[in-house]
Amino acid sequence: MAKATVGRAPKSNGRVAPRRAAVVFKSSEASKAEKIVLPRGIATVDAFRMIARSVLRHVVGNEAAVRVANPDGVHQMRIGLRRLRAAIATFGELLQDAETERLKRELKWLTGRLGPARDLHLLELRIKRQRTADRAEWLAEIAARRSRAFAGAKAAMQSARYRALLHDIRHWIEAGPWAERPTLRPAHREAVDFAADVVARRARKVMRKAERLHDLNVEQRHRLRISAKKLYYAIGFFETLFEGRKARDRLGTFQSTLKELLDRLGALNDIAVQQRLAISVAAPNGKRPHGAATQLPPPPPRDRIKIDHLLQSAVATGAELATAKRFWD
C-alpha cells in the first residue's frame, strides 16, 4: 500500500502566495509524469513555479522505486531529472543567479548516479537475447556490475547530499534568489508570450537540423537529439497555453512527429551506448571476465539491419518535421 506524505511550500517573508499542501505518494512502482495544465493568463514566474513543482513530484515519486532497484523507477527518475534540467534551460532568461548554477551541478551529479544502473540493465537484456558459448561469463560480469550500479543509485537516495538537494530545490522554486528581481523582458512577463517565443526559437533550430539529418554524423545527431528533447519537454510544459482548434491540431501533429524522431534517435543512441558499455565490460583496464573469450560476442546481424532501418526512418521523420505547420504563430 502506498503511503502519503504531505509537504508545504517554504515561507519567504510573505513573498510567496499560499498554496495547498502537495501530497506525495511513496510507492515502489515507477511513477510517470503528470500532465501540466497552466491556466489562461498566468504570469511567467508563476508558470515556472507550477512546472517546477510538477516535475519535482515526478522525480520524488520514483524515489522508493529506485531504493528497491526497480529499473523502470530508475528510468522514470532519470526522465524527471532531465525534465527539471530542461525546465531550467527553458526559463534561462528568468533563472540567472549563482544558486541556479549550483543546483544544475547537483542535478547533473544525481543524474550521473542513476545512469549506469539503467544502461547496464539494458545491456543485460541485450546479451540475454544472444546465443553464444561464453554468454554466461558475460552475464555474470554484467550482473555484478548492474548490482553495484543499483546499489550506488540506492545510496544516492539515502545520502545527505540528496536530501539537501531536495530541500534546496523546494526552497529555490518558491523563494530562490531569482525571485528577488525576475530578469524578464516586459514582453515575456505573460507566460503565453514567453512560451510562444521560446518554443518558436527552439523549434526553428530543431527543424533546420532535422531537414539535413541525412548529412549529420553521429555526434551531430546526438546534439540534434538533445535539442529535440528540450523542445519536446518545453512543448509539454506549455501546451495548454496554445489555444484555438487550429493551433491545438497543429501542436498535436508537430508533437507526435517530434516524438517519432526522438524515438528513432533514442534507439540509435541506446545501441551506441550499449556498444561502448560492452567494450568496457569486455576489457576493464585491459582485462576481461575470467574464462571469457577475448572479445564480446559481436552484435547479431539484426542489429546492423536495425541501425540502417532506424537511420532511414529518422531521416524521413526529420524531413516531415522540417515541413510541419507551425502552431506557435
Rank of each mutant, 00 (worst) to 15 (best):
R102N: 10
K104I: 09
A136L: 11
A87Q: 09
L114S: 03
F91T: 03
R83H: 15
E101A: 12
R105W: 04
L95V: 02
H121I: 00
A89N: 09
I127N: 02
D134G: 09
K128W: 00
R105Q: 14
A89H: 06
E124D: 14
K128R: 15
Q130T: 05
A86N: 13
D134Y: 14
Q130R: 13
T132D: 07
L95G: 01
L94S: 09
A117P: 12
L122M: 09
R102V: 05
P116A: 08
T90P: 01
W109S: 06
R105Y: 02
E101K: 11
T100A: 14
A87I: 03
K104Y: 00
L120V: 04
L120S: 05
R126N: 07
Q130K: 12
Q96G: 01
L125W: 00
L125H: 11
D119Y: 05
R83A: 14
L123C: 10
K128Y: 02
R113I: 01
E93Q: 10
E124L: 11
I88P: 04
H121E: 15
A136G: 00
R82E: 08
E124I: 05
E93C: 00
P116E: 04
K128M: 09
R135S: 08
D119L: 06
R105H: 06
R118L: 12
D97P: 03
A133Y: 13
L94R: 13
A117E: 08
A89D: 12
R83D: 14
R102P: 01
R129F: 00
A86R: 06
P116T: 03
E99N: 05
I88Y: 13
D134M: 12
G92H: 01
Q96A: 13
E101G: 01
T132R: 14
P116M: 11
G92Y: 03
R82V: 04
E101N: 01
R129Q: 14
R113K: 15
E99K: 15
A89F: 04
L103I: 11
A136C: 01
A136H: 13
R85T: 11
L122D: 14
R105T: 06
R82D: 11
T100F: 07
L107V: 07
R135D: 01
E93D: 15
H121Q: 11
G115A: 13
L123G: 06
D134H: 10
E106H: 10
T100I: 03
L110T: 09
K104P: 00
A117F: 08
W109V: 06
R82G: 10
Q96R: 15
R126E: 15
A117W: 08
E106V: 04
L120A: 04
I127W: 07
I88C: 01
L103A: 00
G115M: 09
L84T: 02
A136N: 08
I127T: 09
I127E: 08
A98R: 15
K128I: 05
R85E: 01
D119V: 11
D134F: 06
P116F: 05
E93G: 15
G112F: 12
R131E: 14
E101W: 03
L120R: 10
R131H: 07
T111Y: 03
A89K: 11
R102M: 04
T100S: 14
D97I: 03
L95C: 05
A117H: 10
I127P: 00
L103V: 03
L94M: 15
